[in-house]
C-alpha cells in the first residue's frame, strides 16, 4: 500500500480490477468519454442516420445550460455542500430579465436578472458561511423564498409581457455555420475560466481544501466563511446565466422555467466524478456528465420510453455511480 503499485499494472495492464479502479479514481474522464461514445453508437444503431453535425448541435445546445447548472453543483460539492436553489434562482433571473425588457431595455433587464441572483447568492452564502446552516437546508429554504417572491412579483408585473431579448435568443437557440450552437461562444470561455480557475487560482485551491478537510484549511489560515459566501454568490450568478440560456432556448420565461433541471444538475456533477463529500472532482467531468445525461434523455425519447422511465434511470444511475466512486476512492 505504501508504494504506488506500478508493478501489478505493468504485469497485467488491462485486466486487473485495481487498474480499472485507479483509472476511475484518477482519470474519470477516460471511462466517461468512453460511455459518451458508446451512447452515440447505440443511438446510431437504434436510429441509423440520426448522428449528424446538426444533431450534435441540438444535443450540445440542450446540454450547455445543464452543464452550467451542474457547474454550480460542482463548485458547491467540492466544498462538501450542495446548491438546490439553482433552479429557483435561474428561473427568477430569467423571469425578472424577461419582464423588464419592455420597460427598461435589454441591458438593464439582464443586469437586473444578474442582480437579483447575486442578492440571493449572498444571502445563501451568509447563511451557510456565517450562520453555519447546512447547505441542503439553506438552499432548500432559499428556493422556497425565491419561488414565493417570484410568484408575488409575477402578479405585480401582470401587465408587462414576457420578452426574451434578441441577443439572448441568439445565444440560446440559434446556430452559426449551420451546426455550431451560439451558446458555445459563451460556454467555452466560461468553462475555460472555471476549469482553469479550479486548477490554477488560489480560490479554486481553497474550494478543494475546504471540502477535503475544513479543519486543516482553517488551521492553515483559511477563513472558510469568506470562501463559502463567494462560492454561493458565484453559484447564483452561474445559475442566472444558465437561466438566460434556457429562456433563450425555450423562447420564453416563467417562474418555474428551470425547476426540473435541479436533480439532473446534481446527477451530472456526480456522474462527472465530483464527490458530494467534497475535495474531489472537477468541471471537465461535469461537462461530460451533462452530455451523457442529455444523450441518455435523447436515447430514451428515441426508444419511446416515457419520461417517467428517464427519472427512474437517472435516480438509479446516480446511486450506482456514487456507489462506484465511493468504492474506488474509499480505499487509500
Amino acid at each position: 500500500m505504501t508504494s504506488v503499485g506500478t508493478g501489478t499494472a505493468e504485469r497485467n495492464p488491462w485486466l486487473t480490477r485495481a487498474t480499472w479502479r485507479r483509472i476511475l479514481r484518477d482519470q474519470p474522464l477516460i471511462p466517461l468519454s468512453g460511455l459518451l461514445i458508446a451512447l452515440v453508437i447505440v443511438l446510431q444503431l437504434v436510429q441509423p442516420g440520426i448522428v449528424t453535425a446538426s444533431w450534435a448541435g441540438v444535443i450540445v445546445r440542450q446540454a450547455v445550460p445543464l452543464a452550467i447548472l451542474a457547474g454550480c453543483q460542482t463548485l458547491a460539492m467540492l466544498t462538501g455542500g450542495i446548491d438546490l436553489s439553482v433552479g429557483a434562482v435561474a428561473s427568477m433571473a430569467a423571469f425578472v430579465m424577461a419582464t423588464l425588457v419592455n420597460g427598461q431595455g435589454p441591458v438593464v433587464a439582464v443586469l437586473a436578472g444578474l442582480g437579483v441572483a447575486l442578492a440571493a447568492g449572498v444571502v445563501t452564502g451568509v447563511g451557510i458561511g456565517v450562520f453555519k446552516v447546512h447547505p441542503l437546508i439553506m438552499t432548500l429554504g432559499m428556493s422556497l423564498v425565491v419561488l414565493g417572491l417570484v410568484a408575488v412579483y409575477q402578479l405585480a408585473m401582470v401587465l408587462s409581457g414576457v420578452v426574451i431579448p434578441d441577443p439572448i435568443l441568439w445565444l440560446g437557440s440559434e446556430t452559426s455555420f449551420g451546426f455550431l450552437p451560439n451558446s458555445l461562444f459563451l460556454f467555452v470561455p466560461l468553462s475555460a475560466v472555471i476549469v482553469l480557475g479550479l486548477r490554477r487560482s488560489g480560490y479554486g485551491r481553497l474550494l478543494f481544501a475546504v471540502g477535503d478537510n475544513a479543519i486543516a484549511a482553517r488551521l492553515a489560515g483559511v477563513r472558510i466563511w469568506q470562501v463559502l459566501i463567494v462560492l454561493y454568490t458565484l453559484s447564483a450568478l452561474l445559475a442566472a446565466i444558465a437561466g438566460f440560456l434556457i429562456a433563450g432556448l425555450n423562447k420564453t420565461a416563467s417562474p418555474a422555467l428551470v425547476e426540473s433541471a435541479v436533480l439532473p444538475s446534481v446527477a451530472a456533477a456526480v456522474i462527472g466524478g465530483t464527490s458530494i463529500l467534497g475535495g474531489r472532482g472537477g468541471f471537465a467531468g461535469t461537462i461530460v456528465g451533462a452530455l451523457i445525461l442529455t444523450l441518455l434523455t435523447t436515447l430514451l425519447t428515441t426508444l419511446n420510453m416515457p419520461e417517467a422511465m428517464r427519472q427512474v434511470l437517472f435516480g438509479a444511475i446516480i446511486v450506482v455511480v456514487a456507489a462506484a466512486y465511493t468504492r474506488v476512492t474509499g480505499e487509500a
Binding site: 488560489g202 480560490y203 485551491r205 478543494f208 481544501a209 479543519i215 486543516a216 488551521l219 492553515a220 477563513r223
Partner: peptide, 19 residues
Amino acid sequence: EALLMQRSVRENIALPFSG
C-alpha cells in the same frame, strides 16, 4: 487535522499561500 488527504503534496504545501 493538518492535511488535505486527497490532494497533492504541492497543494498541501502551498495551502497557506492561498488563504
